[in-house]
Structure formats: C-alpha cells, structure tokens
Amino acid sequence: MAKMSTIAILVENRPGVLFNVANMFRRRSYNIESISVGPVENTELARMTVSVEADSRELNQIVEQLDKMVDVIKVKRLDPMRSIMREMLLVKLDTGDPMAREETLRHVNARHGLILHIDPECIVAEVTGEPEEIDEFIELTRPIGIEELSRTGITALEKGRLKL
C-alpha cells in the first residue's frame, strides 16, 4: 500500500545533481511530494530530503535507483519513529480587519511562530513544525484569509547517534 515516506540523500554539491535526482523520480513515474536541499557541514556535499508516496516495493526501487547514481553518495529511508521531520511555512494573511489581526497573532503565538512583517493590510508569519502541524495551522488560519504561502518541504535528521 502506498504511503508517504521520507528519504535522505547525500549527494555531490555540484550543478546538475538536483536535476538528475529529480529526473530519476520523473522518469520512473514516482511523484515527489516535497524536496529540500542544502549544503552540509562539508560544503562539497549537499543533503536532500525527499518525501514521496510509494509502496514498499516502489520505495525499494527508488532507493536502489538513487544509490546507483554516480553523484549520489548515500541514500536512506528514514524511519519516522526514529527521525525528526520538520518543515517551515511562510504565510501572508489578510489582516486589514483588527479581529483578523488579533486572531492571527493568537494562532502564530500558539504555534511558537514568528511575526516577520506587519503592515496595515497584512501580516507575514513564520511557523515551523512537523508537516501535519503545518497542515493544521494552514487549516486554522484559512478562514482569516491567506494571501499566499510558501512551504520549504520536509527536512529531517535521525535521532540520537543514528547517521546517514
């Protein structure tokens, strides 16, 4: 049965590598739900976190197909119980109405978010959390009026001494 899984990938930090990784998913008809990328402590390398909906056999293929790519150094599917998965949301809410503004501040504070910008028309806020928490936050603030939003996609690390 297909379910959402998260894969961590250590790659060469080189032009074209993101393209090649994304291209593998496209070519074999796997749909990337979210992807986040950035250099790691050794800046020659970058780490990608990809979430994808797949059954266990597909997931196995994804890992093996990624693993054999020359620029892919390590691949691991992350066990959700032993990993920390976080996502950041930037959201712009229509807060021309004072009631809306108050409600926005309440929700953002409840999620330990940050208010990044306020003007008479709207508020830009930042919230981080597990992807489900972000979904929930969006649902809560939808009635206020979302002007636009941007999510980073999941980034993840394993707990304790577990390493990629």
């Binding site: 056999r57 196995n60 293929q61 093996e64 197909q65 693993d67 054999k68």
Partner: peptide, 8 residues
Amino acid sequence: IDRSEIDK
C-alpha cells in the same frame, strides 16, 4: 551486478 535489478 546491479542491485536495482533485484526484485524490480
């Protein structure tokens, strides 16, 4: 020799 072929 190509692990990705197993069980494909």
